[in-house]
Design a protein around this nucleic acid. Structure first.
Lengths: 221, 221
DNA sequence: GTCAATGGTTTTGTATACAAAAATACGCTT
DNA sequence: AAGCGTATTTTTGTATACAAAACCATTGAC
């Protein structure tokens, strides 16, 4: 709260929203927030613009800025799109990946494996992020990689809560192996399917997510 | 240029960029632009934020706002992603579309057909937008629909220039018929393939685009 | 001749002041 | 007492003023 660049303001407000201090639909008061962060309304309004662009708040002209947290349906929809974007990355990567990139992806998968053996879920979470990041890049489509990264970032809090489910880490790793093998074989369709299954929320995973979401909401509300 | 809401400002600047008055990499001078639009720097800077969110300008702290036009490669990549998003919409719509929505889509296709018969390319362009908009909604995934809309909007200027190619309008209409039929048959895979082909830039279409892009660039530079 | 330092100028970032619109409260009528 | 119209108060949107950083050009040192 001491620094006050445009970005840090955005992060600060984002934090307040995600932590549940501001509930869904609540109006963000410009003067109160400005006072709280020790800035004037001008930079605060610029931060609002950024948050609106990322979808976390809605800006209604002459009305104000309102918190817009995704509900369960919206979250499910976002994962559905994320699954398709990653599937596309996999499909393209299977055809376009260079040997050097493939080596990097293998290394990331190995790091995941190491984290799994250690039972270090924080590290697994981190290495998993690297794995996916490299996969996006391997698609050879820079724009796709950016978009995938953007959505990945937006889903971050929810993904984390999903990984806490018992046994999910081990299953996730098995799926990584499938994905990697399909890309190595140059089998785009199989890579795409594996990634769709890896990312999408389906079957019992849906129930798991619903349960953890309920808990998180209760804590926030 | 007489009205001056936040959105109209953004559109006005966007127009200046797309029309080529501001070349790629050029800095957008706050005071000059403010004077030109008859507003102060404050709303202008908010418009900059919006343009940065949509990727048309890059905001470098303490340096200013710079035009960032996609090059040919980036544009190709964007269309590749757009094709996949639309394919996904089609795949889902084939399963989820309601009779009422299907009727709306049919009506939009009919309007396109009418525009084609009249040879009214502006109207075709407009009705074509409606057709795609309805398709996004028919996916039953609100988030997907929003993302598709967003990218569609971003590609607007380039799509328009693509449609100017001789005979493209008639071919586009034929593809619409295929898409509609596949959705009506509930054949998700066929709808997806038809849409991928409809949107993606491939084969000679790539050369067409390259040519018109060259011309546009030359006019701008 | 090249490079670095320094002063002046431009330009961004932010605070504040003011105008217009929305929200709210109050009183009036029925 | 309920509903409507109006006055008051918030709150947003915008202009302007000012501070700080970046830019630029001139000058001086090596």
């Amino acid at each position: 709260m001491e620094r006050r660049t445009a970005d840090s303001l955005r992060d600060g407000i984002e934090q307040l929203i995600v932590s549940g201090e501001f509930g869904n639909g609540e109006r963000l008061d410009e003067v109160r927030l400005a006072a709280r962060f020790g800035v004037s309304r001008t930079p605060l309004r610029e931060a609002f613009q950024m948050l609106a662009a990322s979808g976390l708040v809605e800006l209604i002209p002459r009305r104000g800025a309102f918190v817009r947290l995704p509900d369960l349906v919206a979250m499910f929809e976002m994962f559905e799109v994320m699954a398709e974007l990653e599937a596309m990355c996999g499909r393209l990567a299977a055809r376009r990946v260079t040997p050097a990139m493939l080596a990097d992806i293998k290394a990331a998968a190995a790091a995941c494996e190491a984290a799994l053996e250690e039972g270090d879920s924080d590290r697994y979470y981190r290495e998993n992020g690297v794995f996916h990041h490299l996969l996006y890049a391997a698609s050879g489509n820079g724009f796709l990689a950016e978009e995938a990264e953007r959505l990945h970032r937006r889903l971050k809090p929810f993904r984390r809560m999903q990984l806490r489910v018992r046994g999910r880490m081990r299953q996730s790793m098995a799926e990584h192996r499938d994905i990697l093998q399909a890309i190595e074989d140059g089998d785009g369709a199989r890579a795409a399917d594996a990634l769709r299954g890896h990312v999408a929320i389906q079957g019992e995973r849906f129930n798991d997510l619903m349960a953890s979401y309920d808990i998180a909401q209760r804590r926030a509300g």
